[in-house]
């Protein structure tokens, strides 16, 4: 199943773990991608899509990390092709780590995507980029408190001058090899909605969901978005065929 998501050629690189790079546009995502992978990059289209995908790799602490650059999106609501591609990769390819970029100069706007991704997977590292610009603007950010509030590691960076990249690699490694087990604090909804989520989660236990967060699937079902279920149906069929 995992391999369905790789464009031709990527199968050649078998990393020890895969990290997806998600984030809003204009957060310096490509800069971070370049800083992480240097010249070890390949670009291609997502299979069957007109969205370009870049991937690369680097070695760190004796392991090879494959980085997949997801399209820049503001949310994962599958409103557009880009959002769908990003969402499906996180859901179905299940990278060991998802790095979510956030622009330090407009944190609030960027936290939306972070919180949405945390509903899908706990294995997240937040990369708080453009820290130097935030400092110039006189913004004071309490990185430790942010990590505490979100329940996942947060790495402050200024990628265009290479600041924080080493630490980012460290944190990606730690989450990938489960040295760190992030415990995100979920967004809580109204009592009725939470009750409905709980009931659906119970029915979801009878369905093979390939390890995708049940709470997240429940939420999508409740808001009438069936595309996730259809995607699960498609992929479980493909999986079934592959196993035969």
């Amino acid at each position: 199943m995992k391999h369905d998501y790789y464009p031709p050629g990527i199968k050649g690189i078998d990393g020890d773990y895969t990290a997806a790079l998600a984030g809003n546009p204009n957060t310096g995502k490509s800069t971070v991608f370049n800083a992480l992978t240097g010249l070890n990059q390949h670009t291609g289209n997502w299979p069957g899509k007109t969205v370009t995908q870049a991937r690369g790799y680097y070695r760190h602490r004796g392991k090879t990390a494959v980085i997949v650059d997801l399209p820049g999106t503001y949310s994962l609501s599958a409103n557009s092709l880009e959002e769908e591609v990003a969402r499906d990769f996180i859901c179905f390819a299940q990278p060991e780590v998802t790095v979510v970029m956030a622009d330090a100069t407009c944190l609030e706007r960027n936290l939306n995507l972070v919180l949405q991704i945390l509903e899908i997977t706990p294995k997240v590292v937040v990369c708080l980029n453009l820290m130097d610009e935030a400092e110039r603007k006189g913004l004071k950010l309490d990185v430790d408190q942010l990590a505490d509030e979100l329940g996942v590691p947060v790495v402050p960076t200024a990628a265009h001058i290479g600041r924080g990249i080493a630490e980012l690699k460290d944190k990606i490694h730690s989450v990938a090899v489960s040295e760190i087990l992030p415990r995100p604090k979920p967004v809580t909804y109204s009592q009725q909605l939470e009750e409905a989520i709980r009931q659906l989660e119970t029915s979801l236990q009878r369905v093979y969901t390939n390890g995708i967060s049940r709470r997240w699937i429940a939420l999508r079902l409740l808001e009438g978005d069936h595309s996730v279920i259809e995607a699960i149906r498609e992929y479980s069929l493909a999986e079934g065929k592959g196993a035969e």
């Binding site: 944190l107 609030e108 706007r109 939306n112 913004l139 004071k140 950010l141 408190q145 967004v187």
Partner: peptide, 11 residues
């Protein structure tokens, strides 16, 4: 939630 976190963390 994003707003609450941002207002706590950023000054």
């Amino acid at each position: 939630r994003a707003e609450a976190i941002a207002s706590k963390v950023a000054a």
